[in-house]
Design a protein around this nucleic acid. Sequence first.
DNA 1: GCCGTTTTCGGCCCGACTGTTTTCAGTCG
Length: 574
Amino acid sequence: MANEEFVSLLRKCADVLELKKIEWKPRAYRRAARGIEGLREPLKAIYESEGKKGLEKIPGVGESIALHIEEYIKTGKVKKWERLFSSSPSGSSELMRIKGLGPSKVKQLQDELGISSVDGLRKALKEGRVRELSGFGEKTEKNILQSLKLFSIGQARMLIPQAMGIAEETISYLKENAPVSSIDYAGSLRRMKETIGDIDILATCSDAEECMGVFTKMPNVSRVLAKGKTKSSVQLRSGVQIDFRILPKKEYGAALLYFTGNKQHNIELRKIAIKKGYKLSEYGLFSKRTGKNLASRTEEDVYKKLGLQFIPPEMRQSNGEIGLASNSKVPRLIQQGDICGDLHTHTNYSDGVESIEDMLKAASSLGYKYYAITDHSKSERIAHGLSVERLRSQWKEIDKAAKKSKLKVLKGAEVNILKNGELDYPDKILRKLNVCVGGVHSSLKMPRREMTERICTALENEYLDSLAHPSGRLIGQREPCAVDFEKIFKVAADNGKAMEINSQPLRLDLNSSHIRLAKKHGLKFTIVTDAHASTQLDYIRFGVGQARRGWLTREDVLNALPYSRLKKVFGRLP
DNA sequence: GCCGTTTTCGGCCCGACTGTTTTCAGTCG
């Protein structure tokens, strides 16, 4: 049983219970769902090693849910929930996912019109039956129709570069055209999550009304979803939603904190506030007794007053960061400026689009000190992988180009890890490579045990330096390969190999929880772009973001080392 | 249903905007 299975079951229960107007229990179920989502281990493994008591250690899971998990592991179902589901139309859970419809409206649609599916809702809307209900009206009908459109497009989230682009463009537009002073993006974008739903922008300004006017009339706006004095939402022609909020200077920090989230992090902060006799909201931290504002101007102020160290946005994931902050143990996270070179890049020798020379020029302009060219190895035919002969002629060209560059240029390769775990070049070639990045590119659907074995064999190869995109996932397109990460990290640590954090927005691989797990095993990392064009060298910021989400410091990252020290780690550097 | 450095009972995050109804419930973030 996959954990996600049980999580979606819990969420479905919460939906149905909410529909039945049952209080608190849905919230408890959702909390448990989040707790289980945060696990790295399968529920089954926890149950088998520690029994029910082990399950109860999961945040949000108590005696009752632990029993349900036990039943589900043993029988594949939860009787009580089956009954619950059969008492409620199957489509209600789906209906609640439509923006504008909550438990009350869905229940009303169900009870009064017998609607229990998205299609049924569409039909009823067309026939004009929805607007007849009390509490519904013409506008509600129109809104539901709009939301339905979006729903069928799919609530696909954006990859981070698209969201970052839109956010930065919007901010510069507002800076130019409206009287804003401070302005920042918040939300999951500020936390550098791999995918972004909506974009949140906060600002202080001298004339709120004018600002909101400029915002809602931006040229790329297709629909104004809400417009108020302090808060407006628009939908862009691209379908992306932007929420914009205006705040007094004095409250800016509290608001930035609140709207950066994540939600669970906020809830935990509020609980700490309550314990201390305070009340925390987006307006500030207040004394419960006197109502006096205790902190709100900056995020630092609020954290400090709560007795916490400042927590960088990327760490606000509600997985232990508040504990660190209360003990003054928040690390100084790696920053983009710490990166001294890229160690996984391509050129037009394989599937890149630019020449060695052009890539070097671009890398040089980023202020890097060293740069590895790692085109694909011979069996990667589709990417025009390099035969030994072509590799040798590439070396000559690299030598020539390196003379014209200030960079220390390294001859490398992204070498396929073959099905049996061997590398795709003979040892006499591997020996001559300065950098050997090993990656799985074929037979991705191998069973877990075999894939783990395959990668471990490669990690034991003395010439391999780092494991490229270890999980193999493509966000929204391809599931990660089935592998035992605990085992891979252990073997990598035993053999002194580095784990890659691949900055390609579609990969961002390792992800943050695996980064933390790998760090626990004492591993070092490389943060690389895997650039196939010079513009992609900028993706490094997303890889660094991911590393920060995984709590990495400069000391954890090999390509944050100056060349002299990198040389001591990588055995074959010139 | 869960949880506890106030508690094993009695809480459970907080406020804005919308639409519809005329003072507020529902929904969202």
